[in-house]
């Protein structure tokens, strides 16, 4: 039984990777969690999780000639399984992102929750693939008009692919109390609940510098506590893994003869 959740934003710099790892660690208290860096163009999860020097990453699994078992790129850290993506430009150019489906289908058989750290753009087929193959998305936005607009756009894309919305997180908020006056209104436009408001917190930057997820580095920080509460508000709904594999197969129309 597994649920694939894509953490998405539509805009860069919203703290999506910090959010993904925080949610992963919090959900790992009750579920088997696998976090995958599907942002192949701008991989940075490896730096957040102290995995910058690992020998094998998702990039290697996506190489056309790859026969590596998926487990080679899975690292058990901080109570969860993490599949980082590498940053080599050559490997990026040689990678075939459409292989992502097969890799994720494999990983889906071994976990309860798959968290996909998604690219911060809707600009290409590869970039939207995580949203296409997820069961639901979690939107991470800042309380600004461009960020909310982009978040709403991501929601429409998800809806078009039949992907649900688990909720929205206001992240890196400088004045959470002030933001509470817009969150209810914003919630009216989101298909899921507003899961919470996470304050801007120096602890998040320090955690990134230290190469550790926020909930490992500073679990009692304001942002850390807020993410823990957000994770509690996510009602994980695992479905049989075979269904996920089917969904992956059906999501992408095969090339014609």
């Amino acid at each position: 039984m597994v649920e694939a959740i894509a953490v998405a934003s539509g805009k860069g710099g919203t703290g999506k990777t910090t959010a993904t790892l925080a949610l992963g660690m919090a959900l790992a208290e009750h579920h088997d969690v696998t976090v995958i860096d599907t942002d192949t163009g701008m991989a940075n999860l490896l730096f957040h999780a102290g995995l910058a020097d690992v020998p094998t990453t998702l990039q290697d699994l996506l190489q056309e000639e790859s026969s590596l078992p998926v487990t080679e790129a899975v690292y058990h850290r901080f109570g969860m399984d993490i599949v980082p993506c590498g940053t080599s430009l050559e490997a990026f150019q040689d990678a075939d992102p459409s292989r992502l489906q097969a890799v994720i289908a494999d990983l889906a058989e071994q976990t309860d929750v798959l968290l996909l750290d998604s690219p911060a753009t809707l600009g290409s087929r590869d970039a939207v693939l995580p949203i296409v193959i997820a069961d639901r998305i979690v939107l991470v936005v800042q309380p600004t008009i461009p960020a909310i607009t982009d978040g709403l756009k991501v929601q429409e894309y998800a809806t078009a692919y039949g992907t649900g919305v688990a909720g929205l997180i206001f992240n890196k908020v400088h004045d959470p109390e002030e933001v509470s006056r817009i969150s209810e209104r914003a919630g009216e436009y989101v298909d899921g609940p507003v899961l919470g408001t996470v304050p801007a917190d120096e602890a998040a930057r320090e955690a990134r510098k230290a190469g550790a997820p926020l909930l490992a580095h500073a679990p009692d920080s304001e942002a850390g506590q807020a993410f823990t509460e957000v994770a509690e508000a996510i009602d994980v709904a695992p479905a049989p893994a075979e269904g996920v594999a089917d969904r992956f197969r059906n999501a992408v129309i095969p090339d014609g003869p």
């Binding site: 909310i148 929601q155 894309y157 692919y161 436009y189 992408v252």
Partner: peptide, 30 residues
Amino acid sequence: LADEDKIEAIQKRAAMEARQRAEEWDLAVE
């Protein structure tokens, strides 16, 4: 956020764009 018409227009445009792109990218839509 109080301007419902504007938000609805953004959503409609995004929904249309999502479907157009999905067709270009050979992705199945609901």
